[in-house]
Design a protein around this nucleic acid. Structure first.
Length: 258
DNA sequence: ATGCCGTGGAAACCACGA
C-alpha cells in the first residue's frame, strides 16, 4: 500500500498538477495540506473522477487538510487535534483506512520567532505529542504524516547556518520533533536513507529548486508495527519542476501487506 | 540574508507562507 503526503499550496489553483500527479503515481492514500479553500469549495467531483474518495476539513483562505483513498473506504476518526477547543485552524484530520490509522497534519509555521506564532507552534507540537502517545498506546498501526514545518537535523537543510534562528529549525522545535519521535516513531525517509540529502520543499524564488536549495519538512512517522512493514519511500521531486506547481513536492511510503 | 514568488480574498493592496 502506497501512502503519500503533499502540501498543495491551494487545492483549486493546484488542481491540474494534483490530478496529473495522482494519475501518474496512483497512490492508495493521499494526505493533502494547505487546501486554502473553505469546506464547500473542495474539488470533490474532480477528485472523485480521478478515482478517489475524500474527507477534508477546509478553512477560508488558509490551512485546510484532506485525506484521499482509492480502493478503500475512509472512516473518519476526528477532524481537529485534541486539546484546545479555541484552536480553530484546520490543521489535522484522522481516519482509518484499510486497518491503518492515518493522521494528516499541517503543523504551524511559527515565524516570526520568538512571538505569539512561535508560541502557538510549540503548543500545537505539545498537543500533537500527547495525541501521538495515545495513538501508540492503542497499539493500532499508525502513520502520522504531513507538513511538520520542522527540519529535524542539519542534513535536512541546504545551509543550516542560515536557519538557526528560524521557527522551522530553532532548537526548541528540533527538540520537540525529537521528543515526539522518541516515543517510538520511525522517520520513514531517514530509516531508508540515513545519510542522504533529501528535500521536500524549495522556495519559489531565487531559483531555489534549480540550485537545490531545499528543506526536508514533510515527514512520515510510523508506529513500530508499521515501521516493520516499510518497503520503500521517496520524494516525487520532479513534480516540483512542473508548471504552476506547489513549493512542496509529494512524498510517499510503500508498506507491505500484513 | 531579504518574501525577490505564489495563493486567496478583498479591493486594485494585503496577509500569509518557510
Amino acid at each position: 500500500m502506497k501512502i503519500a503526503t503533499y502540501n498543495v499550496n491551494g487545492v483549486n489553483g493546484r488542481l491540474p498538477v494534483l490530478l496529473r500527479w495522482l494519475g501518474e503515481t496512483k497512490p492508495d492514500v493521499v494526505c493533502l495540506q494547505e487546501l486554502k479553500a473553505p469546506e464547500e469549495k473542495f474539488p470533490e467531483q474532480a477528485i472523485q473522477d480521478a478515482g478517489y474518495a475524500a474527507i477534508w476539513h477546509g478553512q477560508k483562505s488558509w490551512n485546510g487538510v484532506a485525506i484521499l483513498a482509492r480502493n478503500h473506504g475512509i472512516s473518519e476518526v476526528c477532524r481537529v487535534l485534541p486539546g484546545d477547543p479555541e484552536d480553530l485552524h484546520s490543521r489535522y484530520i484522522e481516519a482509518v483506512i484499510n486497518g491503518i490509522v492515518v493522521g494528516c497534519l499541517y503543523l504551524p509555521n511559527g515565524n516570526p520567532a520568538p512571538g505569539p506564532k512561535f508560541d502557538y507552534k510549540l503548543r500545537w507540537f505539545e498537543r500533537l505529542t500527547l495525541h501521538a502517545a495515545e495513538l501508540l498506546a492503542s497499539g493500532k498501526p499508525t502513520v502520522l504524516t504531513g507538513d511538520y514545518n520542522v527540519m529535524p537535523a542539519e542534513i535536512d537543510v541546504y545551509k543550516p547556518e542560515r536557519w538557526v534562528d528560524d521557527a522551522l529549525f530553532r532548537p526548541e522545535v528540533r527538540a520537540a520533533f525529537k521528543t515526539l519521535a522518541a516515543q517510538g516513531w520511525t522517520d520513514a525517509i531517514r530509516k531508508l536513507y540515513p545519510e542522504e540529502k533529501i528535500y521536500t520543499f524549495w522556495d519559489y524564488f531565487r531559483n531555489a529548486y534549480g540550485r537545490d536549495a531545499g528543506l526536508r519538512i514533510d515527514h512520515f512517522l510510523l508506529s513500530p508495527n508499521l515501521s516493520s512493514r516499510l518497503t520503500g519511500a521517496n520524494v516525487d521531486r520532479h513534480v516540483r519542476g512542473w508548471e504552476k506547481t506547489s513549493d512542496h513536492a509529494p512524498v510517499w511510503i510503500e508498506l507491505a501487506d500484513e
